[in-house]
Design a binder for these strands. Sequence first.
DNA 1: TCCTTGTTCAACCGAAAGGTTGAGGAAGGA
DNA 2: TCCTTCCTCAACCTTTCGGTTGAACAAGGA
Lengths: 118, 118
Amino acid sequence: MADPLSRVFSALADPTRRDIVARLAVGDATVNELAAPYDVTVQAVSKHLKVLEDAGLVSRSREAQRRPVHLEAEVFDLMTTWIERYRRRAEERYRRLDDVLRSMPDVSAPPPQEGNPS
Amino acid sequence: MADPLSRVFSALADPTRRDIVARLAVGDATVNELAAPYDVTVQAVSKHLKVLEDAGLVSRSREAQRRPVHLEAEVFDLMTTWIERYRRRAEERYRRLDDVLRSMPDVSAPPPQEGNPS
DNA sequence: TCCTTGTTCAACCGAAAGGTTGAGGAAGGA
DNA sequence: TCCTTCCTCAACCTTTCGGTTGAACAAGGA
């Protein structure tokens, strides 16, 4: 899976990885510390971290034997930019439809008040 | 995969599905219309739409034989809320560390590592 | 009624994801 | 030097994912 956006979304699609991100938002941590709360092996958590690292969400440094993991906030922008773009369009489109409906001569049909278009 | 957040992130982890969302931001479309640009079968696109629907990103109505697909913008909030929360925390933490570094008398020794609750 | 169009369901396939165990590398400390 | 700690790599297993083909269902139109 080459593209960065897919990697980020995919990385955050796993609840354990989101949990790890949440934990790292508090402060840097080592793999062992991160693995403690879960009943999976340290190797599994190490794999999760690799996924997060490949997505650019996390970086690892070296400090004696330890490899402290650090959360990188910049990549989040990639997602929010994408999301905002299409959400804005969808909402504009919805608003426009709403306007059209509102400006229509009332045809005995119920008015488009509190619109749920499903 | 039960939780809604995982479903949404997972749904958008696929480039074809993001493409479909982009297409739907312009306006509603049928499965056949959505499938046209890709060289996969209509069934494959139908599956993609099911994933998007299960994530709440899309809804399908009925209109004669056609099933027009509609983009639902609300679910995006689920993601942005999550993302913003941890990005903000990460940035605060970064800013705080920055302040600490800036306010430190320049010692030649390595700085006291920032709050790591181990 | 039968046919055509649009869509979904079911079964299958290969590749990738997420987990395991076991071994190995890197960096101190005794 | 040898030992211990922390971490990653490699091989394997099972489940899920994205795709296929083939059949079926739903709703007009002839």
